[in-house]
C-alpha cells in the first residue's frame, strides 16, 4: 500500500480537531463511573450466557448418568464424586495416559507451529523473492480443501513412512508449516509492523536472520501467543486425525478416549464422560490463562517510539 494511506497521529488529530476542548473532557469524568458500572453489568450478563454451559458441565459431572438428561437445572440433588474415580479408570488405561499423550502432541505442535510458521511468514511478509505471489496463493489453496478428501492419500503417505500409530503424523507436519492459518496470521502481523524498523536495521548492516530474530520476533509476541494458544487448543481438541492415525489405546488422545465412554446405539457412561471432559478442559484453560498474559505483555514491547 502507498504511504499516504497510512494513518498517523496527524490524521487522528485532524479528525479530532472539531471535537471540544480539554475542559469538557474533565466534566465527563463524573458520568464515567456510571458508564463503567453499566459496562460491567452488560459484561457480567454476557458472561453468564457464556459460562452457563460450563456450569452445566460441572453440575452434570456430579450427577448419576440417568439423571443428567432429565434435569436441565443447575441444582444438584445428588453429589456423585464417583464419576471422577470411575471415569479415570474406566478405559484401558488410566486417564492420565491420554492426558499425557495429548500433552506431548500439543507441545510438539506448538513448537513446530511457532518456529516454522514464523519463518515462512517473515519470508512472505518482508522478502521480495521470485514466485512469492504464486507460492502465497498455493499456501492459501491448502486451506481450502476439506480434510475428508485428503485423509486417504495422506494416510498412504504416512503409512509409507511407517508412521501409523505413532505421534509423527500429528506433530511433524506442524514443523513443516503446514498450518497455513498461522503463516497467514503472522504475515498480517508482520505487515502491520512499521517498515522503518527493519529498514534501519538493514542499513546498520544486519542480515535477514538478525532482523528476524532481533527486530521482528520480539515485536510479534502477541501473534506468537495467539499461535501458541490456538495450537494448544486445536491440537488438544483435534479428533479426526487422532482417530485415524492412532489405533491402539495406549496412543489415544483425550478426545478419542472420551468417545470410549459413549455408545450411540446403546448405553453411554455420561457421568464419567462429563467428569473426564471437565478434567481435560483444565489443561487448555490453564494454557489459555498462561498464554493470554503474553497478549498483555505485547503492549509493553510495542511501545515504540
Amino acid at each position: 500500500m502507498t504511504e499516504t494511506n497510512t494513518p498517523d497521529v496527524q490524521l487522528a488529530a485532524a479528525a479530532a480537531s472539531d471535537e471540544n476542548t480539554v475542559t469538557e473532557r474533565r466534566t465527563r469524568s463524573g458520568s464515567s463511573t456510571a458508564r463503567s458500572v453499566i459496562k460491567h453489568i452488560l459484561l457480567v450478563l454476557a458472561a453468564i450466557v457464556m459460562i452457563y454451559p460450563l456450569l452445566w458441565m460441572v453440575v452434570s459431572s456430579f450427577r448419576p448418568t440417568a439423571e443428567i438428561f432429565r434435569d436441565t437445572s443447575l441444582w444438584l440433588t445428588t453429589f456423585r464424586v464417583e464419576n471422577y474415580a470411575e471415569g479415570w479408570n474406566a478405559l484401558n488405561h488410566p486417564f492420565s495416559r491420554y492426558l499425557w499423550n495429548s500433552t506431548i502432541i500439543a507441545l510438539g505442535s506448538i513448537i513446530g507451529n511457532v518456529v516454522s510458521c514464523s519463518l515462512a511468514a517473515y519470508a512472505f511478509a518482508r522478502l521480495k523473492f521470485k514466485g512469492r505471489s504464486i507460492l502465497f496463493s498455493i499456501m492459501l489453496l491448502t486451506l481450502m480443501l476439506p480434510i475428508h478428501v485428503l485423509i486417504v492419500p495422506q494416510y498412504i503417505v504416512f503409512a509409507q513412512f511407517g508412521w501409523i500409530n505413532t505421534f509423527w503424523p500429528l506433530i511433524l507436519p506442524k514443523f513443516l508449516a503446514t498450518e497455513a492459518f498461522f503463516v497467514f496470521l503472522m504475515v498480517q502481523f508482520i505487515r502491520g509492523l512499521p517498515k522503518e524498523l527493519d529498514e534501519a536495521a538493514l542499513i546498520d548492516g544486519c542480515g535477514h536472520f538478525r532482523i528476524f530474530f532481533n527486530v521482528i520476533l520480539p515485536l510479534m509476541v502477541p501473534a506468537i501467543a495467539t499461535t501458541t494458544i490456538f495450537t494448544f487448543i486445536w491440537s488438544w481438541n483435534d479428533f479426526f486425525s487422532a482417530l485415524i492415525y492412532l489405533t491402539s489405546p495406549q496412543m489415544f488422545t483425550v478426545p478419542v478416549a472420551l468417545k470410549g465412554f459413549l455408545d450411540s446405539t446403546g448405553g453411554s457412561n455420561w457421568g464419567a464422560m462429563f467428569a473426564m471432559s471437565l478434567v481435560s478442559l483444565l489443561p487448555v484453560f490453564f494454557a489459555f490463562l498462561f498464554g493470554q498474559r503474553f497478549l498483555i505483555r505485547g503492549i509493553a514491547t510495542t511501545g515504540i517510539k
Binding site: V152, I156, I244, T247, P249, K259, G260, D263
Partner: peptide, 25 residues
C-alpha cells in the same frame, strides 16, 4: 493380538480409510 477399539461413528471412518490405504486390521 493388538486391539483397536473405537466408537460406532468414528469406527467406520477409520476402517474405510485403513482399507482404502491397504492397511486394514
Amino acid at each position: 493380538v493388538q486391539g483397536e477399539p473405537g466408537e460406532w461413528s468414528g469406527y467406520w471412518d477409520r476402517l474405510a480409510t485403513q482399507m482404502a490405504a491397504g492397511d486394514a486390521p
